[in-house]
């Protein structure tokens, strides 16, 4: 057990060192571009996991937070005449915007469950896209541009890489803290049987809302980073219907319900899809190829690569041993519960 924990933390340190060194080793901006966008999606995927992965409520309206974070930054930078690196001070504003939008969004969507919840999140998503197209302060269909950053291409990408990495690590830490806390336990109880959880004193609406707000905060924050990185946002890119689809595909690809799976899915799918875009022969077909790869993976690893891979490793390691230790039935084995008599400490005879 201890060796396992050690191996795990060792692995994490190696991963983190690799992540930190990546832009130093591969300084080519077209390579670091992959890194920045992969980390943006990894952060968003972890944000999705905190709410949807834990509660089982499949949210397809995360682009609402992503786009709102981007727009909040763009609008504030424009109206407050902010320049260059000072714009980064607006990132907390993006995050708060996400949390605030999650409140009315959640009050509507979290009243319903399952398929209805999915449909409601999609509907709200389209309302936001329409608002971005039509409000006077959002720049209409041409969207918003960001202030200019006078960094050369190499440090430009590298700096954004580290900002995105910090966001991703922060999101992972939050997700981990949520997962091990009683809050996370309540979220997973809601996933298994919400009504039963309520009957055991779980304030389901409050707990779901809190998780949704955390999720919205993280997604909006990374939306702000993404906006400043690309220097622009339009209604159809900020509030992109493919955003949520991509996010969910990444998570189901990597492993639904686990932090590592969500991150892994994003780190594989996003660079892959960017790379497919660059192949001239695939021009126009790249999304079909990506779709086919995803379908194949889902066909052979329906629970995602991480859980299926872990099962495979366990299978190899435990080959020859019985899969399940035979359990004795309760009534038949009184001798197996030697502690039973001493336990009725509530005043037993």
């Amino acid at each position: 057990m201890k060796a396992q924990t050690l191996a795990k933390s060792g692995g994490l340190v190696v991963l983190l060192v690799f992540a930190v060194l990546f832009p130093q080793v591969f300084s080519n901006p077209s390579v670091t571009n992959y890194g920045v966008l992969a980390l943006v999606f990894a952060t968003a995927a972890v944000g999705w996991h905190i709410f949807s992965g834990n509660t089982g409520y499949i949210a397809l309206g995360q682009a609402v937070f992503f786009g709102s974070g981007a727009y909040a930054m763009g609008i504030a930078a424009r109206d407050w005449h902010m320049q260059a690196t000072a714009v980064f001070e607006l990132l907390p504003l993006s995050a708060v915007t996400g949390a605030l939008i999650a409140i009315p969004f959640g009050l509507i969507a979290l009243r319903v469950r399952r398929h209805t919840f999915i449909v409601v999140t999609i509907a709200i998503f389209f309302i936001f896209q329409l608002m971005a197209f039509n409000f006077w302060f959002t720049g209409g269909s041409s969207g918003l541009g960001s202030p200019f950053l006078s960094w050369a291409p190499v440090p430009y990408n590298r700096n954004f890489y580290y900002i995105a990495l910090a966001c991703a690590v922060g999101a992972i830490v939050i997700a981990w803290l949520v997962g091990r806390s009683r809050f996370g336990l309540q979220l997973r109880a809601i996933r298994d049987d919400e009504d039963r959880a309520r009957g055991l004193g779980v304030k389901a609406m409050q707990v779901k809302m809190a998780a949704y707000m955390i999720s919205g905060t993280i997604t909006a924050l990374i939306g702000g980073v993404w906006f400043y990185y690309l220097n622009q946002v339009q209604p159809q890119t900020g509030f992109n219907p493919l955003f949520d689809l991509t996010l969910v595909l990444m998570i189901f690809f990597g492993g639904y319900g686990s932090i590592a799976g969500s991150v892994l899915g994003a780190l594989i799918i996003e660079p892959l899809s960017l790379w497919l875009n660059t192949i001239p022969a695939l021009n126009g077909f790249n999304e079909i190829v990506l779709g086919a790869i995803l379908l194949l993976v889902l066909l052979f690893m329906p629970r995602g690569i991480l859980p299926t891979g872990a099962e495979f490793i366990t299978k190899i390691r435990t080959r020859g041993r019985p899969a399940v230790v035979p359990a004795t039935t309760i009534g038949a084995a009184p001798s197996a519960t030697p502690s039973a008599p001493s336990v009725s400490s509530g005043g037993a005879r």
Partner: peptide, 17 residues
Amino acid sequence: RIFPRLTVIENMLIAAQ
């Protein structure tokens, strides 16, 4: 109605908290 994907002890802790 138990929580099938939580462990037995976690089921207990849900009610305890």
